Amino acid sequence: MDNNKIGSKPHFQILDGLRGVAAIVVVFFHLAEPLSSNHLDNIVNHGYLAVDFFFLLSGYVIGYAYDDRWDKFTFGGFLRRRFERLQPLVVLGMTLGAIGFYFTDSTIWPLIHTVPVWKLFVVMLIGYTILPIPLSMDIRGWQEMHPLNSVGWSLFFEYIANILYAAGLRKLSNKALACFVVLAAAVLLHFALTNPNGDVTGGWTLNAEHMRAGLTRTVFPFFAGLLLSRVTRPRYIKNAFLWCSLLVAAVLLMPRIGGAEHPWINGLYEALCIIIVFPLIIYFGASGVVHGQTEAKICKFLGDISYPLYMTHYVLVYFYVAWISNNKGITLCQAWPYALLTFGGTIVLAYASLKLYDEPVRAWLRKKLK
């Protein structure tokens, strides 16, 4: 923690930094994905688990920030605050995705050149609401609920978790919440072990299979984070940012386990990471103390760009994926300069989005929605 205040509470700088570390791994995961032959050999194999980490971190921070302040908040007031924080970059991501849509036409997305402008416009407007589009409105061909900005699906489930929390689950006693979290963990473990893919991926398509995956991936980590914020008290841990960052990277960069023959082994690994390892990382991160101005600046920078990076990076990744698909057989050695250039572009875009758009818009919304 540091001595900066949010209201009357200390601010967890290290957790901000860890969110940025996870967001960077997500970018690398998406840059490595088109170079893999299947879901078993991505060199950033478990990068998608960053989403589950984000959900747990979100539950922890929201519980810490709001759990004891509901005498000052209404349901609408809480959602208004979440809207101010989340929605501006949802709108920006969808807008940038629409602007670049026709320029990413390639063999991997056969529908793009057939999409009329009015349909693109309608999909963009629906995307602004973060509500999922039906499969009949798919304009890219990947069966995504947000084809203009692929990562939008996780924000849809983030809102669901926030609504469930504000609508009533926040009122659960610690014992009742613990029972709920244990049940959600059992559901997550069963899903991970029985999923034919041997992982917890899913949630981006509006159908029963993906809705189950999305809810399973959201409910346990979010409410486990909430429980963690209630029942633990941070202690003093040295070098927490360094060790937690390395642990986050190690979990997300871990190669596939079990192969095609024993997919349940990989599912077990992922379930244990979400149920045990991620809560420990959050606890250690919350217990850590920032050492010196350099580490403080790194944590602040990573925390500041984490959400803008997550919400805008896929706009550039679409161009990168189109280039890969239009150059069949390209190798990692050939692709890495373009991947590195794309990565640099995502950092610049994220920072520009933060300073030129997100911060000014959020300040304006705070004044308008008081």
Rank of each mutant, 00 (worst) to 15 (best):
P10M: 06
G17H: 09
S36F: 02
H39C: 00
L40V: 04
L40K: 03
I43E: 04
I43R: 13
V44C: 10
L49P: 08
A50L: 03
L56E: 07
G59L: 08
V61D: 13
I62S: 15
D68N: 14
R69M: 04
G77C: 11
R82T: 05
R85W: 13
P88F: 11
T104P: 04
W109L: 00
P110T: 01
V123K: 00
G127Y: 11
Y128E: 01
P132T: 02
W142C: 00
H146S: 05
G152R: 02
L155E: 13
F157R: 04
Y159L: 04
L169T: 08
S173P: 04
N174D: 14
K175Q: 14
F180L: 13
L189D: 05
A192H: 10
L193N: 08
T194N: 14
A208Q: 01
T218Y: 11
G225K: 06
L226V: 15
S229Q: 10
R233D: 09
R235C: 01
Y236T: 14
C244T: 11
S245W: 10
L246P: 07
L246A: 15
V248S: 04
L253C: 14
M254N: 09
M254S: 07
H262G: 02
L268N: 07
E270C: 06
I274C: 03
S287N: 07
H291P: 01
G292A: 13
T294W: 15
A296E: 13
K297P: 01
K297A: 10
K300D: 09
L302F: 15
L316S: 07
L316D: 03
F319K: 01
Y320C: 00
S325D: 00
F343E: 08
V348M: 12
Y351W: 10
L354C: 05
L356D: 11
Y357R: 15
W364P: 00
L365M: 11
K367F: 07
K368R: 15
K368N: 11
